[in-house]
């Protein structure tokens, strides 16, 4: 059993619903989204390109972040997710440096949007903030890094572990269009309007994700680093993952 995600860049419209759905489901601070869509331009008018690249945590098979963690807070679950045990995390941020994908978050920073939502929706002291729409407290699971992020720890995409961990055992794919599986499917996959995201068991050759990777030549981001991401991209005619030509200024 190895959960994994496939993102079809040909279908992705860059709308950022994944980022927002994740942000609300996981009570992320504005601008601290576990899932971002990065935008790039290259070329010159009238042949400029605008490209985008959705980037969740890659939940690597061989995660750099886990190897550098001094307390063992970051770990790999048996079903393939990379999680942080907030009870063990000391907020040293080694993992943030080690991660080649830039998908780990610490919350002691200047707020992106003023006035600071941490002040407006003040927490009980344990959490970084307390938005009125925070998840029911019983869903919080600090051993798995699920919940409103506490102060002084690092957080990351959990593949919505509070959802996927309740999925029926042995299921090949979590199809958000199936009413029986929808509530176990990661938020970003549920909401993706063009249907660019797929989620399933990479160990199961019969799963939709395995078939898509095979048929549509799935690729992994920065594969040469050896992290073996469990998130695959289908490029199609959309162009490959970000090229070194990309820049964001002129």
């Amino acid at each position: 059993m190895k959960w994994g995600m496939v993102i079809d860049l040909e279908k992705c419209t860059g709308c950022q619903a994944c980022s927002v759905a994740c942000g609300m489901e996981n009570n992320r601070l504005p601008g601290e989204h576990w899932q971002d869509v990065l935008f790039y331009t290259e070329g010159e008018y009238p042949s400029a390109q605008l490209k985008w690249f959705p980037r969740p945590c890659m939940h690597c098979e061989n995660p750099s972040c886990m190897h550098v963690c001094p307390t063992g807070a970051t770990y790999k679950t048996e079903d393939g997710a990379v999680l942080i045990n907030w009870d063990k995390c000391i907020g040293c941020k080694y993992c943030m440096i080690a991660c080649p994908y830039g998908v780990r978050f610490y919350t002691d920073e200047k707020p992106l949007v003023e006035p600071n939502v941490k002040t407006v929706f003040k927490s009980d002291g344990e959490h970084s903030w307390s938005p009125p729409w925070r998840m029911p407290a019983t869903r919080e699971d600090w051993k798995r890094g699920v919940g409103v992020q506490p102060n002084d720890v690092v957080s990351k995409c959990t593949f919505c572990y509070h959802r996927i961990s309740k999925a029926p055992k042995g299921v090949a794919d979590l199809d958000p269009n199936d009413p029986n599986l929808r509530d176990y499917t990661p938020a970003c996959v549920v909401t993706c309007a063009p249907g660019a995201r797929y989620f399933g068991d990479l160990d199961n050759p019969e799963s939709e994700v395995s078939k898509l990777i095979a048929k549509k030549r799935g690729v992994r981001l920065l594969d040469h680093l050896g992290n073996k991401p469990q998130v695959y991209y289908l490029a199609g005619e959309a162009g490959a993952v970000p090229s070194s030509r990309a820049n964001n200024k002129s």
């Binding site: 709308c15 950022q16 619903a17 927002v20 942000g23 609300m24 269009n177 909401t191 309007a193």
Partner: peptide
Amino acid sequence: GKLCPKGHLGA
């Protein structure tokens, strides 16, 4: 079953 980015922000 889908939403655009704004749809999630109703709360």
